[in-house]
């Protein structure tokens, strides 16, 4: 398989993730779309690892997963905290801070 295929597949997933963050109002879904972006990166990283025959990139993917896990725990905690207060996860109601 040419590396381009993976490059474009990964870019497509990445951009779908970006579209998702732009289209949805539910904070959890937006967060999921960001996870999708991270996975697109992981896929590309593994493809490059294969291309170079280098294990470094796969270890890097590990670390991305580590960080993603840490972020998820904090992020979901923040979303739950918000939900407790306003009983919604709609990001449109987050507009006390503006101007």
């Amino acid at each position: 398989m040419p590396i381009q295929y993976y490059l474009f597949l990964s870019m497509a997933l990445f951009c779908i993730g970006i579209m998702g963050t732009l289209m949805r109002r539910n904070a959890i879904i937006i967060f999921m779309c960001i996870e999708l972006m991270l996975n697109a990166v992981n896929l590309l990283m593994v493809a490059f690892s294969k291309m170079y025959g280098d294990a470094q990139a796969q270890v890097f993917v590990f670390f991305i997963m580590v960080v993603a896990a840490a972020e998820v725990s904090v992020g979901l905690a923040i979303i739950v905290m918000m939900y407790r207060k306003v009983h919604s996860v709609d990001i449109n109601i987050l507009n006390r801070l503006k101007h």
Partner: peptide, 10 residues
């Protein structure tokens, strides 16, 4: 499958 399911997510 990956692309289709990704679209399904959003």
């Amino acid at each position: 499958m990956a692309l289709g399911c990704a679209l399904g997510v959003i």
